[in-house]
Amino acid sequence: MIPGKFEYFAPTSVSEAIGLLGQYGSEAKILAGGQSLIPAMRFRLAQPEILVDINRIQGLEYVRETDDYLEIGALTRESAIEKSTIVQQRYPMLADTARVIADPLVRNMATIGGNLAHADPANDHPATILAYNARIVAEGPGGERIIPVDDFFIGIFETSLERDEILKEILIPSPPGGSGGAYLKIERKVGDYAVVGVAVQLTMEDGLFKSIRIGLTNVSSTPMRARAAEALLVGQTPEEALFDKAGRVAAAECEPWADLRGSEEYKRDLVRVVTKRAIRKAIERANGVL
């Protein structure tokens, strides 16, 4: 399996990259970690005429915490996120996610920006980033803009990024006290795309759910939140019966399809079970259990 021919550019600045994207329009494709793109090119499912390799751009690989956000550079490799102490201690759901993406070697190349910009509903980060209510920082010819994550995924393999925009940074709001999160993934074997994945990020206050966001992996054509399940939980007292109900609601609102990973019915039921488990684990973490 040999990729088709293409013209290769390796810009060293974001503005140079944006210029190339502007110049070549839909013929151009950004190469970040390349771990999804290059296999697609080998099968000639993707045949871009222009590749804009952004790996030469300095300053896009970092994980740092400010007062308001965890800031992650778009080119940050999954392995760096997985191994980051800040992430492990303060953003365990993100650590959960990074460590179940593909395999350790792929994670040494794969980037969080690529994972999100590819907008594959089977990718793991979209669910987590939705649950975190993150913001996506994009830069285009007109400068930077911040895209709320709820507006980011707009279709299958489609985001609200303009053709000449580059995803630069992901901003995850610092969780207030009493917060916890967890990402649980069911896979046929290690390294597989999710049969289903559930990301839950919540904040407890006075023994009640103050807020909760639930992201789902690979059960809809566009990465989705289980909004009805979230709505059911907010303001309520955590208890098993309620988790079960939330699981059922999430199972009803997702839109899985039958494939080799399972029937629609099976996937819905896994969403139900795994949502419950993710809520339990997120609560444990909110209570200080890592």
């Binding site: 395999d103 046929r188 074997k189 290690v190 390294g191 597989d192 795309y193 080799l260």
Partner: peptide
């Protein structure tokens, strides 16, 4: 190895033909 009703092999890569790893 799974075929669809048209005879196409649906498990034609290591993404879907599941060799056990060290974890399984």
């Amino acid at each position: 190895i799974v075929y669809d009703e048209n005879g196409q092999n649906l498990s034609g890569t290591f993404m879907d033909y599941l060799l056990p790893t060290s974890m399984e």
